[in-house]
């Protein structure tokens, strides 16, 4: 568990996103909201970091190089140490099919791009609270 200098719980979020601009934007905004953000730029790196760094939550872009978001999710959900990490899929607009596929692959939730931060925060907090309550 990550704690701030003041001893508060600081959730660690793994952001898996290949687009540099989206990555920069979202990580900075999340950091300002008090999250610790670690970054992976493709699916394979995402899986490796999830195993090594034990994040509290993963934000997963779906169209990723090397290993796509669906496959990365399947691998994470298939392995015991990472199975319980909640994953939010980030999918493109109007691709309703992608959302269904994301849930089928084992994602706990999804949100559409472009990101509306308040909406995404709500989902992140809901999943983190469920996690800590357990």
């Amino acid at each position: 568990m990550n704690l701030s200098k003041w001893g508060e719980f600081v959730p660690k979020i793994l952001l898996v996103e290949d687009n540099e601009m989206n990555r920069d934007m979202l990580s900075r905004r999340l950091q300002r909201k008090g999250f610790q953000v670690i970054i992976a730029v493709d699916g394979a790196q995402g899986v490796a970091m999830a195993q090594a760094d034990a994040p509290d939550l993963i934000l997963m872009d779906m169209s990723l190089p090397v290993l796509d978001g669906w496959e990365a999710t399947r691998q994470l959900k298939a392995s015991a140490p990472t199975r319980s990490i909640p994953i939010i899929a980030l999918t493109a607009h109007a691709m309703s099919g992608d959302q269904e596929r994301a849930l089928q692959a084992g994602c706990d939730h999804y949100d559409t791009k472009p990101i509306e931060l308040p909406r995404l925060l709500e989902k992140i907090n809901a999943l983190l609270n469920k996690d800590t309550a357990r």
């Binding site: 601009m21 989206n22 934007m25 607009h93 472009p114 931060l117």
Partner: peptide
């Protein structure tokens, strides 16, 4: 077109 637009929207919000 949507990719750069995401940046415009996101950074202006930030």
């Amino acid at each position: 077109l949507r990719t750069p637009l995401n940046a415009v929207i996101g950074y202006s919000e930030m």
